[in-house]
């Protein structure tokens, strides 16, 4: 039981995670399922939403700042700026809707390439709604193949039954912890130093020096 939700500042690392994918694939449900252990029918996300989760992975206390985005194409002008500085990106598709899978090639992989500022950022491919096995049209093998081609971690899960939901976020966090550059970005110590520098700069900027 390493995870707990709610606010608090006692963490070693803080990471920014972004969830993307077509409308209706269950991005918000996945997040709500992870945060609060149950899923109601959710209204479509308008613009962006945001949740915090504290968890412990590999003995490290982590804080995940998770940005949930609207999937509809028109909202991309609002959501694209949220790719910046993300250490982890979760791409979600619905195994019962083929188009949500093909749009990963057509749309979402390109969005990541275009807007993600982080070379080492961990990408995770999540196949959602596996509880609807009888309606499945995208096979697990296809998911694995995509994940391999685009260098993603892959998991099949169900926000509804919570199958693999915690694993999804835990594994993503685990992978991020393995990358030194991401670790450095997420380190609280480093962040505080940067903040201090920023404040000092601001203070001195008041004296008329800025570049």
């Amino acid at each position: 039981m390493g995870s707990s939700s709610g606010f608090g500042s006692g963490h070693d690392y803080s990471f920014k995670i972004l969830i993307i994918g077509d409308s209706g694939v269950g991005k918000s449900s996945l997040l709500v399922s992870f945060i609060s252990n149950h899923v109601d029918d959710l209204a479509p996300t308008i613009g962006v939403d945001f949740k915090i989760k504290h968890l412990t992975v590999g003995g490290k206390k982590l804080k995940l700042t998770i940005w949930d985005t609207a999937g509809q194409e028109k909202f991309r002008t609002l959501t694209s700026s949220y790719f910046r500085n993300a250490q982890g990106i979760i791409l979600v598709y619905d195994v019962t809707q083929r188009e949500t899978f093909t749009n990963l090639f057509e749309v979402w992989a390109k969005e990541v390439e275009l807007y993600s500022t982080n070379q080492d950022c961990i990408k995770m491919l999540v196949a959602n709604k596996v509880d609807k096995e009888s309606e499945r049209v995208v096979t697990k093998e296809e998911g694995i193949a995509f994940a391999k081609e685009y260098g993603c971690v892959f998991l099949e899960c169900s926000a509804k039954t919570r199958e693999n939901v915690e694993k999804c976020f835990n594994e993503l966090a685990y992978k991020i912890l393995e990358v030194p550059s991401l670790l450095e970005e997420g380190s609280t110590v480093v962040k505080n130093t940067i903040l201090k520098q920023k404040q000092e700069r601001q203070a001195s900027a008041g004296g008329g020096c800025c570049s």
Binding site: S23, G24, D41, L42, A43, P44, Q72
Partner: peptide, 9 residues
């Protein structure tokens, strides 16, 4: 797209 959102409104 509309149908998908109807029950979510």
């Amino acid at each position: 797209d509309i149908i998908r959102d109807i029950s979510r409104t």
